[in-house]
Computed example of a mutant assay.
Amino acid sequence: MSTFAIHPENPQPRLIRQVCDRLQEGAVIAVPTDACYALACLPGDKTGADRIRRIREVDETHHLTLLCRDLSELGVYAKVDNSAFRLMKNRTPGPYTFILPATREVPRRLQHPRRRTIGLRVPDSPIVSALLAELGTPLMSATLQLPGDDTPLTEVWEIEERLGHAVDAIIDGGAGTLEATTVLDLTGEGVEVVRHGLGDAAFLDE
Score class of each variant (00 low, 15 high):
123 P>V: 02
16 I>Y: 01
186 L>E: 09
72 S>E: 14
25 E>H: 12
23 L>C: 08
77 Y>S: 03
119 G>E: 05
49 A>P: 09
52 I>D: 10
185 D>F: 07
192 E>N: 11
195 R>I: 07
184 L>E: 00
137 T>Q: 14
144 L>N: 00
35 A>L: 02
106 V>C: 06
81 D>Q: 10
120 L>N: 05
192 E>W: 06
55 I>A: 00
9 E>Q: 15
61 T>S: 14
95 P>H: 06
130 A>T: 00
85 F>V: 07
103 T>F: 03
74 L>I: 13
77 Y>G: 00
32 P>M: 04
132 L>M: 07
177 T>G: 08
195 R>G: 07
20 C>M: 05
82 N>C: 11
206 E>W: 11
155 E>F: 11
131 L>V: 09
7 H>D: 15
201 A>E: 12
139 L>G: 10
129 S>D: 14
200 D>R: 07
35 A>G: 13
25 E>G: 12
85 F>L: 15
93 P>T: 08
166 A>D: 13
198 L>G: 00
171 I>L: 08
40 A>G: 12
54 R>Q: 15
88 M>H: 04
177 T>A: 11
18 Q>F: 09
106 V>I: 10
93 P>S: 04
87 L>W: 02
145 Q>M: 14
198 L>V: 07
104 R>M: 05
129 S>M: 05
206 E>K: 12
105 E>Q: 14
187 T>V: 11
137 T>E: 14
121 R>H: 03
169 A>C: 11
103 T>S: 12
